[in-house]
Nucleic acid binder design. Structure first.
Length: 293
DNA sequence: AAAGCGTGGAA
DNA sequence: TTTCCAAGCTT
């Protein structure tokens, strides 16, 4: 017996009209295309992903096509989506799919989890959205919706995979079809209405039963995740600047040429070393370049 | 298990 | 301007 069947029903009814026509939700989208979308959407907003996804799927419509390309091209096509390790992992995942799964994206959770760059969210998202499997799918939007509507907290607090999955599982409606819809609908509600900053409770389909609202929308004072480190002057910033150079140059870039991106030599060296360690850059006799094999 | 990892949008 | 945060994952 679902804990709150009417909550899921109300959210699903709302979703029927409110769902954005995101391209990866089209009926004819392949599991590979769904997998690509989930990689790109990790910590990256929908609006920035859409054009990159369209181009990616057109260029590499199958895992085999992706695996046949050099990783350097994957990193270039990733462009400025951020966290370029994801491009590398996606390429490696495509290679693994070709080698171990006959070129077809696997449908089993364990097989998906074994792919590089695929964690608890992405594996369940692909299983549920591409294959229709009945798994709880929990992303940051869903966590926020549950925190507010069910737990009465304005903020979800630090994530805990086991706890978050159990909470969503308890909310899934009994019929498989409704459970499938609810996974997407809860995410959509969190992404478009029950937002982190300024939730639009006036148009929320469950405002009348939201535990947080009923409690007067109290300020959250519980534990929070650690703040992101300052970006300006960080290794992440320098890595990003180096990657921009490597993507633009279709030839090795010397250490001297890289010096233009950052004046602090020690910090620059550390950034380049970490990129090499990640496999995002390789060092040859003439300098640094994107990985070609 | 806490920290590191890009880039950009929005308040 | 600063700050938060965005369909997370890896080590």
């Amino acid at each position: 017996m679902p804990a709150a069947p009417d909550l899921a029903e109300a959210v699903n009814d709302w979703f029927a009209d409110a769902a954005r026509p995101l391209p990866w939700r089209a009926a004819d989208v392949s599991p590979w295309a769904v997998l690509v979308s989930e990689f790109m959407l990790q910590q990256t907003q929908v609006a920035r992903v859409i054009p990159r996804w369209e181009a990616w799927i057109e260029r590499w419509p199958t895992p085999a096509a992706m695996a046949a390309a050099p990783p350097s091209e994957a990193v270039r096509a990733w462009d400025r989506l951020g966290y370029p390790r994801r491009a590398l992992w996606l390429h490696r995942a495509a290679t693994a799919i070709v080698e171990h799964h006959g070129g077809e994206v696997p449908r089993e959770l364990d097989d998906l989890l074994a792919l590089p760059g695929v964690g608890p969210y992405t594996a369940r998202a692909v299983a549920a959205f591409a294959f229709g499997a009945r798994h709880p799918v929990v992303d940051t939007n869903t966590r926020r919706v549950i925190a507010r509507a069910v737990l009465g907290q304005g903020h979800p607090g630090p994530p805990s995979t086991a706890r978050d999955l159990a909470a969503m599982d308890a909310l899934l409606p009994e019929p498989d079809a409704a459970a499938r819809v609810f996974n997407a609908a809860a995410m959509e509600l969190g992404a478009t209405v029950c937002t982190a900053r300024a939730p639009q409770c006036d148009v929320c389909p469950i405002a009348d039963r939201c535990a947080w609202r009923l409690a007067g929308s109290p300020e959250y004072d519980g534990p929070r995740s650690a703040k992101q480190a300052r970006f300006e002057g960080s290794d992440r910033q320098v890595r990003g600047l180096v990657m921009r150079e490597l993507r633009a140059a279709h030839r090795p870039v010397s250490r001297a040429e890289l010096a233009v991106v950052w004046t602090d030599a020690a910090k620059l060296d550390r950034a380049v070393e970490s990129l090499v360690a990640d496999g995002l850059a390789v060092q040859g006799p003439e300098g640094f370049a994107l990985p070609d094999a």
